[in-house]
Structures are given as structure tokens and as C-alpha cells.
Amino acid sequence: MLTIGCHLSAAKGFAQMGRDAVSIGANTFQYFTRNPRGSKARAIDEADVAALLKIMEENHFGKLVAHAPYTLNACSADPHLREFARETLRDDLHRMEYLPGNYYNFHPGSHVGQGAETGIQEIAEALNEILWPEQQTTVLLETMAGKGSEVGRSFSELREILDRVELQDKMGVCLDTCHVSDGGYDIIHNLDGVLEEFDRIIGMDRLKALHINDSMNPPGSHKDRHARIGEGEIGLEAIARVVCHPQLKGLPMELETPNDLAGYAREIALLRAQENG
């Protein structure tokens, strides 16, 4: 059975996200740890967390994916912004210990003219500063579409970051279907080849989660505009091959399509039908 969910609003608390997930047929979900465009995070309510953990156990949930705010840039040219990113990442990871054993995903950042090598080094240094041996959360680097000066536009760039991180067992990768297609990887016609390349460069054991999105733009566009499943340039047939691929089926898959809860329910049902069809 697919482990599939969507991005849910954390504004009403952890237990409500769990109830919303169950209501749309999901058995995982993704959420922002704090305001996606800001820095404030809700205080942790331990009773609320306990209620979510109970819902997850009763409904056989897979691992959850927490998402860092978009404003973080661990490789900014501005040292104050780099420090803000480190402090936010550090705080988020300590908050994640209330939900042990799950995933924390973040966009590696943009080097803003410093060059990819400098960006890669800054990101790795940030991770080496904030990760600790006893943490129970795995940190995921997200595959990026390559717009502007984004770091992580290729499997090779992600591998270079990973190679520089000291606590290797705390790291993984989240593959975003819109991003990799926009980044030039042909998941439409050659999914097996893309996964073979990922395995050769990074290793399939590093792939911990997926973002399942169609794309408003054609492959190789480097744009990063998500579309509803079957309404974009990737298409339902190619997305179905991703979610049903034997090397991927056990991983948590999170929809980030432009939808409300009813729309996510339809997409989850659609993809479960592909699995069973």
C-alpha cells in the first residue's frame, strides 16, 4: 500500500493534521515547522503531539516529513542570513525530537553569485555545526529545479554536500518530481535511467521521501512551478510510474500540488487507483 499524503496546514496543531490526513485517505503528511515565509514557530504542546502519535499508530502511518521555511538560505552571501538559517535549523531539529524518527526536509539554498562550490561548502558547514549524534531525525536535502543560483540542481551537487557532512547517518535526500523534471532529468520517458543515475551518484539508500508534483513547465525549464497531478507537463502516466515503481513504493510520498483538502483527497484516490490498476 502506498504511503501517501500531502502538505497540511500546521496552524490548527498536530492532532488536527492527523485527523485531516485520515479524512482524505492519507497515511503520512508534510507540514511546515513554522511560518514558511517567516521565522515564528508555535510553542510545542506535548498533549497535542501525543494525540497525533496515537492517530498515527491507530492508522498505520508512515514517516512524516517536516519542511523548513522557504526563507532559509544556509549559503547566503550575507553572514547574518546564514546565521539565521543555522539557528532556525537548529531550533527545528530540537523541536523534531518530540516526533522522533521522522524526516526534516529543506531546500539547500542559493549561492547568490558566490559559486556552487562556495554554496556547497557553506551548507555542509552549517549541517556539521547543528547535527548531533543522538538526534532521532533524518535531515533531507531536496532536489532542486535549478532556477537562479540554487544549489542542489543536480544529483552531483547533492552528493558533494553529503560527502562533506560528518554525521552521515543523519542525512538523506527527498526527490521532487517537478524539480527533477524541470532540472532536466527525464522521468517521463526514462525513469529507470534517472533512478540508476541517482543510485550511481548518491545511492538509493539515501532516498528517504518524495514530493509528488506535476509541473507547469516542460522538462529542463528550470522554473519550479507545481501543477495538479495529470494537469501538467509530466502527466498522470509518468507520475503513476513513479508512485508504483518497486524501488520507491515504500517511501513516504507527499503531494505539494495547488489544492485544498478535497483536491488532495481526489489526487490520493487517483494515485491509489493507479497502484491497484
Rank of each mutant, 00 (worst) to 15 (best):
G230Y: 01
R82A: 03
R228H: 12
F155L: 04
L270S: 01
D20P: 11
G113V: 08
L167A: 11
H189F: 02
T33W: 12
F61T: 05
D169N: 14
S149K: 05
R90F: 07
Q274V: 05
L270Y: 00
R82C: 08
G263N: 05
L248E: 14
T137G: 08
G62W: 01
A66P: 13
E237I: 05
I229F: 06
M17T: 02
E275P: 08
C75H: 06
H67S: 09
F198H: 06
H94Y: 14
R164D: 03
P69S: 09
S110P: 08
C174N: 11
H67Q: 04
R37L: 02
L72I: 13
G184I: 01
Q136K: 15
I120Q: 03
E237D: 15
Y98N: 15
A66S: 13
I188D: 05
H245C: 00
Y31H: 03
E275V: 07
T28I: 10
E83Y: 05
E166H: 14
A227C: 10
E160S: 12
D169I: 00
H67M: 03
P133M: 07
G250Y: 00
V173H: 11
E122T: 11
G119D: 09
R95D: 13
V180W: 03
L131C: 05
G148H: 04
R206V: 00
E157L: 08
D163F: 10
P258T: 03
R86F: 11
V22Q: 07
R200I: 04
L236N: 10
K54N: 13
S9L: 06
R241F: 04
E254H: 15
L8F: 07
F14I: 01
R34I: 05
L131G: 07
G250W: 00
